[in-house]
């Protein structure tokens, strides 16, 4: 009913090798004996497949994602900026000039705030990805070649 299967000694021995195997860290003899065992043991074959899935999942979780908006560069190439003919100079009043300068300064301040905020967010995301990668690496080596337990049943998150 439960689906719980007790592993024999041979399976236990080979499961310890699996983590090293998928990282290409097993010797020739170990690789051969593990391959032979997996070919004849459906349970270990499934376990090995699951480990590959886990490895790929971790890699994909921490793979850098595109952060740069390439569309602007692409559009710039598609629609090169045309040089406009110099416009006739018009005289403008002092007040209009002051308003214009103030508006330009305001625009510049807002733009730089938005750009700073975006760059800060990108930098924080990059930092998080870096530390997450380190954490996975630490956990991988912490576990070494031991312990292939698992199956998430319930996963919850709560604040203190």
């Amino acid at each position: 009913m439960s689906g719980y299967t007790k592993l024999n000694d041979e399976c236990v021995m080979f499961r310890k090798l699996m983590s090293a195997y998928i990282d290409d860290q097993t010797g020739e003899a170990e690789t051969r004996s593990l391959s032979d065992h997996v070919a004849s043991c459906p349970s270990c074959k499934r376990e090995l497949a699951n480990l590959y899935v886990m490895r790929d999942m971790i890699r994909s979780s921490y793979a850098p994602k595109g952060e740069v908006d390439f569309s602007a560069a692409v559009m710039a190439r598609i629609n090169p900026v045309k040089r406009a003919a110099p416009a006739p100079v018009k005289k403008i009043g002092d007040r209009a000039l002051r308003y214009g300068v103030a508006a330009a300064l305001l625009f510049a301040a807002l733009s730089s705030t938005v750009l700073y905020s975006q760059s800060k967010t990108r930098s924080m995301m990059a930092e998080k990805r870096k530390f997450d990668t380190y954490m996975v690496e630490h956990a991988e080596q912490y576990a070494g070649s031991g312990g292939a337990v698992a199956a998430s049943v319930i996963s919850v998150n709560f604040e203190k």
Binding site: G3, T5, L51, V149, A150, N157, F158
Partner: peptide, 10 residues
């Protein structure tokens, strides 16, 4: 964070 898991199959 809390996680409850079964140690059977992944």
């Amino acid at each position: 964070s809390v996680l409850v898991a079964s140690a059977d199959e992944a």
